[in-house]
Design a protein around this nucleic acid. Sequence first.
DNA 1: ACATCTGTAACGAATACCGTTACGTTTCTC
DNA 2: GAGAAACGTAACGGTATTCGTTACAGATGT
Lengths: 142, 142
Amino acid sequence: MAKNCRFAVAVHIASVLALSGDEPATSEWIAGSVNTNPVVIRRLLSALAKAGLVKSTRGSAGGSVLARPPEAITLLDISRAVEEDEAPALHHQPPNPACPVGKAIQPVLMRVLDRAEAAREAVLATTLLSEVMAQICAEAKA
Amino acid sequence: MAKNCRFAVAVHIASVLALSGDEPATSEWIAGSVNTNPVVIRRLLSALAKAGLVKSTRGSAGGSVLARPPEAITLLDISRAVEEDEAPALHHQPPNPACPVGKAIQPVLMRVLDRAEAAREAVLATTLLSEVMAQICAEAKA
DNA sequence: ACATCTGTAACGAATACCGTTACGTTTCTC
DNA sequence: GAGAAACGTAACGGTATTCGTTACAGATGT
């Protein structure tokens, strides 16, 4: 998979918000838990808000809360919200159409890569934020 | 520029070798089909050779051939051969253990990401190079 | 008014990937 | 042997991406 930690941090953010419940959490507080800069958190919160997963309020006593209960948020929702719309990982330059392989390989590769990605997303789609929360609580006690 | 074309180019290389059969293909010839530099091809051929998928011979009239028939090579074999051993896409800095989420989230995330990756790899594991070849031939005729 | 907090732009360092040049080594042919 | 052909690999530079940081404008409650 990828080398960026956006998804990991976004799930972290959502987990903190799930624990906070109705109490708005500030980006600075979340940043303290993630151990990074508040702007990094706000960037991801902005993406999550655009996807309708969180709601943020400005001003004093502001902060962010989940827009839906954790049972209604899948990890695929979070992934789609914060990951780039990944262009297919095909050739940089179009291959040589004079070669039969170069002429025909790209659609074939696209189909396989799409199937592989769909399988990966199916796992994320069946994992709820509430399940992650339950595992975090279990892990914290152990 | 896109993310990582190593897998796409490696499948392209393997397809060219499959079509060449016993006739060794030179890195320059393959580079002509992929539309890139021969050294890029040789780097990937080197990785494929280390994985036991191709055999290369040096010297005049040298080149590369598949080490196994296309029915005995899966796309997962190729992916494993040329992709980096991907470190987990977790936090850059370890999260704050003083927060219950920060303390417990990493193993939970690891498990989910491992399951997702396994699902992706399962698709590649069930796709043979010979099947890709068949699709390329069908595509080339259309 | 003022403190607090979000939203976003801008910049820099670190990193990854790929194309390219260069050069040593191996092998075939004459 | 000599030379040509081909691989193996190191090194370098351009480009893109990611993340952390600073800075500042806008919104909101006290």
